[in-house]
Amino acid sequence: MALVTAGVVMLDCAEPEKLAEFYKGLLEGEESEVSANRLEIRGGDGTRLAFRRDANATPPSWPRPENALQAHLEFLVEDLDEAERRVVGLGGRPLEAKPAPEAHEERLFSDPAGHSFTLRRTVSTAPKQG
């Protein structure tokens, strides 16, 4: 039996409720644990994210070095355009600082609190039809 049964990525932010709503919408998830200063959500695929209240939290400044990249999330999606529309509709914003090597395969965004994340197109493993 494994000693550690699950991992949770924790993001510090000034408003955990607001950030949890963004990621619940993106991951089609639900709250799984709530306290005064911490919210945890579980996405439809089992992804677990938590948000801890920090009144002094400052957004990362990536790609500028002043406040560096504190954490970076990557989400696998089948349809980048559809996922981008959802991100923007939920309050995220594109962070295309420079084109990725395969610009059509991944896109960089920030959540409403300024944490960066990537949407990366999944590679189909299904055999070609026809």
Rank of each mutant, 00 (worst) to 15 (best):
Arg107Glu: 02
Thr118Ala: 14
Arg85Lys: 15
Trp62Met: 10
His104Tyr: 13
Lys128Leu: 15
Ala126Thr: 09
Asp12Cys: 01
Pro127Lys: 12
Glu21Gln: 06
Val4Trp: 14
Pro65Cys: 04
Glu21Thr: 06
Pro101Asn: 11
Glu102Phe: 08
Val8His: 07
Lys128Ile: 07
Leu80Asn: 09
Pro101Leu: 10
Arg120Tyr: 05
Arg107Val: 04
Glu31His: 08
Asp111His: 03
Glu31Pro: 04
Arg107Thr: 04
Gly43Ser: 08
Ser61Lys: 07
Gly7Pro: 01
Leu19Tyr: 01
Pro59Val: 00
Arg120Glu: 07
Pro94Asn: 06
Arg52Cys: 01
Thr122Pro: 01
Ser124Trp: 05
Val9Pro: 03
Lys128Cys: 10
Phe51Asn: 01
Asp12Phe: 06
Cys13Ser: 04
Ala103Tyr: 03
Cys13Ile: 04
Arg64Gln: 10
Ala57Thr: 00
Phe109Leu: 06
Leu76Gly: 15
Ala50Tyr: 02
Arg38Val: 08
Ala36Met: 09
Lys24Phe: 01
Val4Gln: 14
Asp81Tyr: 06
Glu28Tyr: 01
Glu66Ala: 13
Thr122Lys: 15
Glu33Ser: 15
His104Phe: 14
Phe109Pro: 04
Glu106Lys: 11
Val4Tyr: 14
Arg121Pro: 03
Val77Trp: 00
Asn56Gly: 03
Ala103Pro: 11
Pro60Cys: 08
Arg93Asn: 13
His72Ala: 06
Lys128Met: 12
Ala50Thr: 02
Asn56Val: 00
Thr122His: 06
Gly130Lys: 14
Ser32Tyr: 01
Leu119Ile: 06
Pro101Trp: 06
Cys13Lys: 01
Ser110Asn: 10
Glu105Phe: 08
Val34Ile: 15
Glu106Leu: 13
Val123Cys: 05
